[in-house]
């Protein structure tokens, strides 16, 4: 412990000045690195939000994966509602335009909710009538 204290009191050499905390830098730029990957992958040419002196907090919230061309073909309607409103046709359409299993699952879930709702209504009607 004493040795450590003595070492830390030694003056920095010239070479020591030419160093930086690479791990800290990596952490600081994590979100921007992800955004850069999204720009390259999705060929974005415009930020979906104001970038100039963007507050870091706002950036962390808004720098979510950007919509790509396939998802735009869903007209901004979440896959869940495609399944909910159009059932099997909705699932097929979401799968065709997005080729994404996660979105297709959401559409399927919407379809299941639709089925459960219709079945419930049918059963309630049966109970009321009989």
């Amino acid at each position: 412990m004493l040795a450590f204290c003595l070492l830390s009191m030694l003056p920095l050499s010239a070479a020591d000045l030419f160093s930086y905390n690479a791990e800290q830098l990596q952490n600081e730029l994590l979100v921007l690195n992800e955004l850069e990957c999204a720009v390259i992958q999705d060929q974005l040419t415009r930020a979906p939000f104001e970038m100039d002196l963007l507050p870091a907090v706002k950036g962390a919230v808004q720098m979510v994966p950007q919509p790509n061309a396939e998802v735009d073909k869903l007209y901004g309607i979440p896959p869940f509602y495609w399944g909910l409103l159009l059932s099997g046709v909705g699932i097929a359409y979401v799968y065709k335009v997005s080729q994404d299993s996660e979105r297709t699952k959401q559409a399927f879930l919407g379809c299941v909710v639709n089925g459960v709702a219709l079945t419930s209504i049918y059963l309630i009607r049966l109970l009321i009538l009989y």
């Binding site: 600081e28 730029l29 979100v31 921007l32 690195n33 955004l35 850069e36 720009v39 930020a47 970038m51 100039d52 002196l53 963007l54 507050p55 870091a56 950036g59």
Partner: peptide, 14 residues
């Protein structure tokens, strides 16, 4: 590609 980050701001320019 320029990535800038301060305590209150972040910026990406490509």
């Amino acid at each position: 590609s320029i990535k800038g980050k301060s305590e209150t701001a972040a910026q990406l320019v490509m």
